[in-house]
């Protein structure tokens, strides 16, 4: 059994660390797909620290929690096996000041894939956006991440901007 629910600002330190580990694993996956700007050494911790003061207000982190199995022991707690993060964004006035729900990250542990957790995590984010009347949604996806591009296309997202970089050296 896996339950999807939001991470609280006062979540237990071990739960925060587990989400940070998923965040780092996601960047490891993207590194393998040619990501050009790598995660900083303490990037996951810095990311979470930046979001926590506004978690539930400007940002949400929906987490897939796997229910412990009997073999995990009597004191085992639900374990994060995937997460999706989203933020409220307001565009500049010259572009109409559009309020949008930005899907900033979505990742599922490889061992937990194939059970529709990605869809459930996105649905939880979409519900959070809908509660705030954010009808415009946006996200960025790595150009080489074909699986992710198929996933988002299947959910109705269409390509718009392409981010291009010219690296130093």
């Amino acid at each position: 059994m896996t339950e999807v629910r939001a991470l609280d600002r006062d979540a237990a330190p071990e739960d925060l660390r587990a989400v940070e580990a998923l965040f780092t694993a996601m960047y490891g996956h993207m590194d393998g797909l040619g990501l050009m700007v790598p995660l900083a050494p303490d990037g996951a911790g810095l990311w979470l620290k930046a979001l926590l003061p506004m978690l539930g207000k400007l940002h949400t982190i929906q987490v897939a929690w796997a229910t412990p199995q009997p073999a995990d022991g009597p004191d085992a707690r639900p374990r994060p096996v995937g997460f999706a993060a989203g933020s409220i964004r307001v565009g500049p006035a010259h572009l109409g000041g559009i309020r949008s729900g930005a899907v900033t990250h979505l990742y599922v542990d490889p061992a937990a894939r194939g059970a529709g957790l990605g869809h459930r995590l996105y649905e939880a984010l979409a519900a959070w956006f809908a509660e705030r009347d954010l009808r415009h949604q946006e996200l960025e996806v790595l150009v080489n991440n074909e699986a992710a591009r198929r996933f988002w296309t299947s959910l109705g997202f269409v390509p718009d901007h392409l981010v291009m970089r010219r690296m130093p050296g």
């Binding site: 003061p53 207000k57 400007l58 940002h59 964004r89 307001v90 500049p92 000041g97 309020r99």
Partner: peptide
């Protein structure tokens, strides 16, 4: 616009790191 109140923003809180402002909005 973001559904926040003044009480949500402390005097010492980073407006950019927290996501209240992006760099363009800060310059505005």
């Amino acid at each position: 616009e973001m559904g926040l109140t003044q009480a949500d923003v402390g005097d010492g809180m980073s407006l950019t790191q927290s996501g209240v402002l992006d760099s363009f909005a800060l310059m505005e």
